[in-house]
């Protein structure tokens, strides 16, 4: 089966400024892809490119096996939930949800049936007559989800949808989005700067920085085997401890030595089975530290630079 979303060698420039460099990602039907990275890493721009809201400067993009590189947003068979929810302020909740169908000329009875179904699914029936201005943050969030759900798209796009909610509501909505994903078996692309959100929701994570992909993998892969220092430092809470160290070799193999200001260097007993430069960064996850044991149970070592 063709991947539901396939991005090949995507570039995005504003004038001479490169925002996205050589992006290659693909996801299968039912995947929950999370784009995560610090602000300004290009993750939202990438999402806008997928939606067709930003033209791309180079590369190819296909959704559901169809080339969508130059197709307008309305013909991409997508739905999107925005950070500010972007509800139409002068329309009632019901009109907000049915606006897309109305524009597309869907007949009245289908509109009503779908509205009823979505409203029931999200438990927003009592809100249908209200204006967005009369809703709380959480309610707006639900309406925005409803507007996306009612489209029944091939691909859902989420642009930091939970960042405007308070902490408690955020956890609730996270669970709900997760459940929604499982119930609908829908494909989703989700942008966030919150790595906990990324870890808990994703079936596949893309870590980005400076417009480039740093690593693609499952939560476990990213967590346990970060591809570089940036990923190691950015993902995981609390962050991994990163300690400068020396790699030394003897006849038995390579081992790691942590220098100390005063006293003998700490020599780690585990051998490393690959070649390392002499200057390395030794990463230790707090979870892997066992108070009973003198040495870490598990560790990741990254080559420096």
């Amino acid at each position: 089966m063709a991947p539901i979303l396939e991005i090949q060698n995507l570039y995005k420039n504003y004038g001479s400024l490169e925002i996205l460099k050589d992006i290659n990602v693909s996801i299968d039907s039912g995947d929950f892809l999370v784009l995560v990275g610090p602000s300004g890493c290009g993750k939202s721009t990438l999402l806008n490119c997928i939606a067709g809201l930003e033209p791309i400067s180079g590369g190819k993009l296909s959704i559901g096996g169809q080339d969508m590189t130059n197709v307008s947003p309305k013909d991409r068979n997508i739905a999107m939930v925005f950070q500010s929810y972007a509800l139409y302020p002068t329309m009632s909740v019901a009109k907000n949800i049915t606006f897309g169908m109305k524009v597309r000329g869907v007949d009245q009875s289908t509109q009503e049936a779908k509205l009823a179904q979505v409203a029931q699914q999200l438990q927003i029936e009592p809100l249908l007559g209200r204006r967005p201005g009369q809703l709380s943050g959480g309610q707006r969030q639900r309406v925005a989800m409803g507007r996306a759900l009612v489209r029944d798209p091939k691909l859902f796009l989420f642009d930091e949808p939970l960042s405007n909610l308070d902490a408690k509501l955020r956890v609730e909505m996270r669970t709900e989005i997760k459940a929604l994903h499982q119930n609908l078996a829908a494909s989703m692309v989700y942008v966030t700067h919150d790595q906990i959100e990324a870890m808990t929701l994703a079936t596949k994570i893309v870590v980005m920085k400076g417009g480039e992909i740093q690593q693609i993998g499952t939560s476990a892969e990213i967590y346990n085997r970060p591809a570089n220092l940036f990923v190691a430092d950015f993902m995981g809470s609390p962050a991994m401890n990163l300690i400068p160290a020396k790699a030394r070799s003897n006849d038995d193999g390579t081992y790691i030595e942590i220098l100390r200001k005063d006293g003998e260097p700490i020599v780690l007993t585990d051998q490393v089975n690959r070649d390392l430069p002499s200057d390395v960064i030794h990463g230790v996850k707090h979870k892997t530290l066992d108070r009973r044991a003198a040495s870490p149970l598990h560790r990741v070592t990254c080559s420096s630079r």
Binding site: L53, K74, M80, F82, A86, L87, Y88, V103, R147
Partner: peptide, 19 residues
């Protein structure tokens, strides 16, 4: 984002302005 949402909803330049 309001314009973007309406674009995804399928509305064009004049529809977004008008509605």
């Amino acid at each position: 984002e309001l314009t973007k949402a309406a674009k995804v909803d399928g509305a064009g330049f004049f529809r977004i302005f008008w509605s």
